[in-house]
């Protein structure tokens, strides 16, 4: 393994996992240390979910949101994925000397608005200022606590043979919006990040059935990365159908310009939900009736036909092939 930190260690793929295993897990290991989005902790008769997430998005303002909105959605969604109603959040800012106060206020307004929409309260915060060049404009860390609904047990380790795999909308839009906002490639498209708090979707599906096995938000590394994580945690095979993947045409256009695959582009307002096939229609109908769930679709299934830990794609020509494992930094492929 490498001796220094690489950008790829933050990509959410194999190398992130290596870093976690070798450095963090090795020293932090305890019964509550989790591979899921949030830890589930017993407290009296209740179960709490507890999560934390750092945000360093560049640029901090992008079509469809800003780093403030993102920092609320990220933690709210991590809690929601455990079946926990998000309740309280804290936030810590690291600001770069010289950062305009008007921009900071824009970010904070977005946080307040998003927190309100998500039904959470910001209860504590911290501010540090770093001298110019020590950080890039603004970094935010949010932590959150939520209360698990009574009988809910969701985990990346609970996918079962025969389950259906749903996504709550078109994939890769946040990643595409950020790529464009960086203005490195001269590409323009009217596209907004999918960034949104999603507790209402989780609540709605949990009310429909007790049999939700997995809920994950497909953030860094995209849906492809999340599917590999689930396949590995649950020790199951996963099969998806290329043609059933909901992708906005503009995202497809951007991906074909840069030689990228929307399966590995980040989402910030999309869930992967895994439940028995018999629940599929009911869940899709429920999701599609709600904001941010209109584009929900079934993209494949959990299956014993494939090796545990593998993700297989049925391609446009009807062939089946392994989905390449996401690795490292996303590099546009041109030649």
């Amino acid at each position: 393994m490498d001796q220094t930190v690489l950008l790829a260690h933050g990509g959410g793929g194999v190398q992130t996992q290596e870093l976690i295993d070798r450095i963090f897990k090795a020293h932090f290991a305890n019964p509550y240390f989790t591979a899921d989005d949030a830890a589930v902790l017993p407290l009296g008769h209740e179960r709490l979910a507890f999560s934390t997430d750092g945000f360093i998005v560049s640029p901090p303002f992008f079509p469809g949101g800003n780093i403030g909105k993102l920092s609320i959605c990220g933690t709210v969604n991590d809690l929601a994925c455990m079946g926990a109603q998000p309740l309280w959040l804290t936030c810590a800012f690291v600001l770069e000397e010289g950062f305009p106060l008007a921009d900071l206020e824009g970010i904070v307004c977005a946080m307040a608005e998003t927190a309100k929409a998500a039904g959470v309260t910001l209860v504590a915060g911290d501010t540090k200022v770093a001298s110019k060049g020590q950080v890039d404009k603004v970094f935010i860390t949010t932590s959150g606590i939520g209360r698990l609904l009574g009988n809910v047990h969701t985990s990346g380790a609970l996918a079962r043979d025969g389950d259906a795999i749903l996504v709550t909308g078109d994939i890769g839009r946040h990643g595409a919006a950020i790529l464009l906002a960086r203005e490195e490639f001269g590409i323009e498209a009217e596209i907004e990040s999918d960034c949104a708090p999603l507790w209402h979707l989780v609540q709605a599906v949990l009310e429909k059935t007790d049999e939700i096995h997995v809920i994950r938000d497909a953030t860094r590394g995209g849906v492809g990365t999340v599917l590999y994580e689930i396949a590995s945690q649950s020790q199951v095979g996963i099969e998806i159908r290329q043609e059933d993947l909901p992708v906005d045409p503009r995202v497809s256009g951007i991906c074909s310009m840069l030689g990228l695959d929307p399966l590995y582009l980040a989402c910030e307002g999309r869930l992967v939900i895994i439940a028995p096939h018999k629940e599929q229609d009911r869940l899709l109908a429920t999701l599609r009736a709600l904001p941010h769930g209109e584009g929900a679709a079934c993209i494949g299934s959990v299956t014993g036909r494939h090796k545990a830990g593998s993700v297989v794609v049925e391609t446009a020509i009807g062939a089946k092939t392994l989905l390449p494992r996401p690795t490292g930094e996303l590099l546009p492929r041109i030649c």
Partner: peptide, 12 residues
């Protein structure tokens, strides 16, 4: 090469 693998053409 890339597309042939991606589409799984060898497998059919």
């Amino acid at each position: 090469t890339h597309e042939i693998f991606r589409l799984g053409i060898r497998n059919i």
